[in-house]
Amino acid sequence: MLALARKVNQSIMIGDDIEITLLEIKGDQVKIGISAPKSIPVYRKEIYLQIQEENKQAGQEVDIAKIRDLFEKKSKDK
């Protein structure tokens, strides 16, 4: 992890097209601004992790062979 010290209104660049600016410091909170292309999603980490978990649950692969075996077994039982 790279740690950088910045003052209010100073920025850092990530690549050529992502700029992170320190907007405000109030007590233990820091407000940042992020300028990035619309094609790059930007999320708070807790939201990002929630999206990843939901995608994982939605994308669990179905074992087609097991489903086929179940149908074949049912048709043989009839």
Rank of each mutant, 00 (worst) to 15 (best):
M1H: 07
M1T: 11
L2T: 12
A3L: 04
A5F: 07
A5G: 06
R6C: 00
K7M: 01
V8C: 03
V8S: 09
Q10Y: 07
S11H: 02
S11Q: 06
I12K: 01
I12V: 11
I14G: 00
I14L: 11
D17S: 14
D17I: 06
E19M: 14
E19A: 11
T21D: 02
I25D: 12
Q29Y: 11
V30F: 02
V30T: 14
K31F: 01
K31S: 12
K31L: 06
G33F: 04
I34K: 13
S35H: 06
S35M: 11
A36Y: 01
P37M: 10
P37H: 03
P37N: 04
K38W: 00
K38H: 07
K38T: 07
K38G: 14
S39N: 10
I40K: 14
I40E: 01
P41K: 10
P41Y: 06
V42D: 03
Y43T: 06
R44H: 07
K45C: 00
Y48R: 10
I51R: 14
E53T: 09
E54K: 15
N55K: 15
N55A: 09
N55Q: 11
K56E: 06
G59R: 15
Q60V: 13
E61L: 03
V62S: 07
D63L: 05
I64P: 02
A65S: 12
I67R: 07
I67N: 03
I67M: 05
R68L: 09
D69Q: 15
F71A: 08
E72M: 07
E72V: 10
E72D: 08
K73F: 10
K73C: 00
K74Y: 01
K74I: 02
K76C: 00
K76W: 02
K76N: 03
D77H: 09
D77P: 00
